[in-house]
Each structure stands twice: as C-alpha cells, then as structure tokens.
C-alpha cells in the first residue's frame, strides 16, 4: 500500500531582518511516499535548512502547510528524527555512545531502551562501541552513531541534513551504502538534503531539484536505478551518468523566483 508520508503544500518562509524581509523558501510543494527515499538537491544557500527546520517543527513557517502521515505539523512531531551534518556537535559528549542512542527513548522502559539502542548500533556496525564516548570515535563512526540514534527512535520520517558532507570521500561511500542497506532492512522513509549531485542520484528513489533562494521545486526526477546499487557499477552506468548530467543542467540554469514569476 502506497500512502503519503509527508505532504508539503505551498510552503513559504520569510525571515524578518533589520534590513528588510528575506524569503528563504516560497511556494514549495511536494510529497514523500511511505518507504521512499527522496533527495533534495539545490544550490548552496537556497533555503534547504529552512525547509528541514519547517518540516521538523523547529520553526513555524510563515505560509503553507506540512503534514506528516496526514497530521498537520504544529510543533515538533513525535515520530520524526533528524541527522545533522555536524555529528560532533549533534552528539552529546557527556554521554556514552549507548546513552546517546538511548537519548530520545525516554518513554520506554530501561530494558527496552537498552535493547533498541543495541539493535540500532548493530545495524550501523557499532555493536561494540556502546561504552565509548563519541569523541573517542572517528568522524565516520560518530555519524554512524547519529544514524543509529535516529533509527532507534523508529521515526515515521527520517530527515537528513547534508549528513555525509563532513566526512572524507571513502567514508562517505561507506555511509551512503550503509544508509541504503539500513533503509531497505527497516523500510524507513527518508528525506535527505544534499548539495552533492552524485549523492542525490546515487541515494534517491526520486530527486527534487530546487531553485536559488527563495527555493521552489524546479524538477522532480524519478531515479530508475533499482534497489541494488553499488559505488562502482552504479556510478558508471549510463542511467546514472545521464541523470547526474540532467540534475547538473537543471541546477546551473535553475531560475530565480523572479524569472519564474
């Protein structure tokens, strides 16, 4: 059964500053179906963060609506998890890895918390790191912990804000494949924001291309690369090369809102 997990309709947000108002996003409309992995790619500074913050209820958008499985978002939704780019600042250094993963599970019993965190850590290949502290791990491992924390929460929607932008290329490939495997195993719905064109095509079932600020959806491309992907053959396949060229072209000619009007 396909149902809509996330419904973003005519979303707009204007920041009020001393030197006038600034439209970060405007008229954004798209949906994410249950079980889908959608990548949002856009030029830097186009308002991607504002979009994620509106969806996660951290800010109240000035226009439009966001609905999560049919419920309008008003405040932070209970079944949504976020993985930020800056893992070193998003993990809590005073807590062990295990405790970090257990952090959002406060409503569960102690035994359940331990079990869930253990499962999530195993899913990201860190079953033996629970007693360590985040700062004793490498950057890639820290981001795995952040992913495990989000997974342990069993969110209806997993939001990822440039999750692999701060790790080296090798680690980035590993983490991308980890994400693909985990979301297949756990049937997680993911909305991932990135500025990396290749990454958006490699990971996504669909790629949403945004315009320059204020961001609008310029194109929504279906990615027909199938479920099984790997870093070498997929990235050299004709379909991949063609799609990345298309996204790149769209980004380069991405109109500003003024030319659209």
């Amino acid at each position: 059964m396909v149902r809509t997990m996330l419904d973003v309709a005519d979303l707009g947000h204007t920041y009020q500053a001393k030197d006038g108002a600034h439209d970060a996003i405007d008229g954004l409309t798209f949906t994410v179906e249950a079980g889908e992995l959608v990548c949002v790619v856009g030029p830097s500074g186009c308002g991607k963060s504002t979009l994620l913050r509106s969806i996660s209820g951290l800010i109240r958008p000035t226009r439009g609506t966001v609905s999560l499985h049919g419920t309008p978002v008003d405040g932070v939704p209970a079944d949504l998890a976020v993985v930020f780019q800056d893992y070193s600042r998003s993990l809590f250094p005073w807590l062990t890895v295990q405790r970090n993963v257990e952090f959002p599970l406060r409503e569960l019993s102690k035994a359940e918390r331990t079990a869930r965190a253990g499962e999530a850590l195993a899913a990201v290949g860190l079953e033996n790191a629970g007693r360590k502290y985040p700062w004793q791990l490498s950057g890639g491992m820290q981001q795995r912990v952040a992913i495990a924390r989000a997974l342990a929460y069993r969110p209806a929607l997993l939001l990822m804000d440039e999750p692999f932008a701060s790790v080296d290329a090798q680690t980035r490939f590993e983490l991308e494949d980890l994400l693909l495997r985990v979301r297949r195993e756990q049937d997680t719905t993911v909305l991932l924001v990135t500025h990396d064109i290749d990454e958006s095509v490699y990971l996504g079932d669909r790629v949403l291309v945004l315009s320059k600020s204020p961001a609008r959806v310029v194109a929504a491309l279906d990615v027909g690369l199938g479920e099984k992907r790997d870093q070498i053959t997929t990235r050299s396949s004709d379909e991949f090369v063609e799609l990345r060229a298309k996204v790149a072209g769209l980004l380069q000619s991405a109109p500003t809102a003024e030319t659209v009007h």
Partner: peptide, 14 residues
C-alpha cells in the same frame, strides 16, 4: 551552550 545540542534534543521531542 551549543545551539545544535539544543536543536537536536528538540527535534527528538524534548
């Protein structure tokens, strides 16, 4: 206080 710590906690419904 690191604002990202606060934001992370809030995003998890704290």
């Amino acid at each position: 206080l690191d604002p990202l710590h606060v934001e992370t906690a809030r995003a998890f419904g704290t």
